[in-house]
């Protein structure tokens, strides 16, 4: 929006005013670490999306070296089995105990973990915003009921609930082994993770709305005769988006970590789906023989975690107009 000011004896001057989101974007870009993290996240997301074109080999295929037919094999001689090979031009991250390409498996693992985490934050946001809004805007008994449910979900030990839900869900969604290109057992694991993570989001949204309800702009909107729906959509929703997005950003690394930990103790993703967590736990046993299989997936996990944490921190500052730089 451009405003033209006219005054006596002065030349017309144009003052640029930017919208809320344009201003947020500008302030996010001003924070170097957060902006770099965003670029890194975009890059990793692109790798995940175009994984099929990036991976040099089928992640499930064992790449044993070819043997010439009829050649005599000396059983005592050292021979190349194709297993545990160190990083090379052919296998960037080396090969694992079944001679599979670790680079391809890591890229596919990144895709599985990222898309499943995206699925989890969508579930958490839907439940959390829905419950939080209904509690803050609805009648009093609904508020009490929903907050009691939130307390119960909060008091439920996370890991125990996930393990229980895992055994309730089984491995298939409506009898389908995979949905949207991700194995059903992975999605169900992340659904279980999401079902333990929504109380924080619900409390956040409810708390935000309760304080917004008391603000002067709400009173002004009511005084001007705005309908309930208009107030909720035009005034309340935009003012909760910031904290919700920030909370969702922090949820991504938490969900990916939870998956890794659960797969590690054997109650997570069912093999052979190469999620990052499963890759890490799989290679724990072979760490004395080869380090690449443990190192690279862990490094990707750590980079993901840091990128999302730094981006979330920066986004929180950028979204809050009170911390203008």
């Amino acid at each position: 929006m451009a405003v033209v000011l006219r005054g006596l004896g002065t030349r017309p001057e144009r003052i640029e005013s930017r919208g809320y989101y344009a201003e947020t974007w500008r302030r996010l870009r001003a924070q170097r670490v957060a902006y770099a993290s965003l670029l890194l996240i975009v890059a990793l997301a692109l790798v995940a999306i175009f994984a099929d074109w990036i991976i040099p080999y089928d992640p499930a295929e064992s790449r044993f070296p070819e043997t010439t037919a009829g050649a005599t094999i000396d059983p005592l001689a050292e021979r190349d089995t194709g297993k545990y090979s160190p990083p090379s031009r052919e296998h960037l991250f080396g090969t694992d105990h079944l001679a599979r390409d670790i680079f391809s498996r890591t890229v596919v693992g990144l895709r599985i973990s990222l898309s499943a985490a995206l699925f989890a934050i969508i579930v958490v946001t839907l439940i959390g915003v829905g419950v939080g809004m209904a509690a803050a805007a609805g009648p009093r008994f609904l508020d009490r009921l929903l907050m009691r449910a939130t307390d119960v979900a909060y008091a439920f030990p996370d890991l125990l609930l996930i393990i229980l839900l895992r055994s309730v869900f089984g491995d298939e969604i409506f009898g389908l082994n995979s949905l949207l290109g991700v194995d059903a057992n992975v999605l169900l694991l992340f659904l279980a993770i999401a079902l333990t993570a929504w109380p924080t989001m619900a409390r956040l949204v409810r708390g935000q709305l309760l304080s917004i309800r008391e603000t002067e702009y709400t009173t002004a909107a009511v005084a001007l005769g705005a309908s309930r729906a208009r107030i909720a959509l035009r005034h309340w929703l935009p003012n909760t988006t910031g904290p919700v997005i920030v909370e969702a950003t922090f949820l991504v690394p938490r969900a990916i970590f939870a998956e890794a930990a659960l797969s590690f103790i054997g109650v997570g993703v069912t093999p052979p789906t190469p999620s990052l967590g499963l890759l890490i736990s799989e290679h724990f046993r072979f760490v004395g023989i080869t380090w690449t299989g443990l190192f690279f997936p862990t490094a990707v996990l750590a980079v993901l975690f840091m990128a999302f944490s730094f981006f979330g921190d920066g986004l929180r500052d950028a979204l809050d107009p009170r911390t203008r730089h």
Binding site: A260, A302, M306
Partner: peptide
């Protein structure tokens, strides 16, 4: 601190 928080606890344990 950031590094410790970014590595899964089981990897750190290992």
């Amino acid at each position: 601190g950031t590094t410790l928080a970014a590595v899964p606890s089981f990897v750190l344990a290992f």
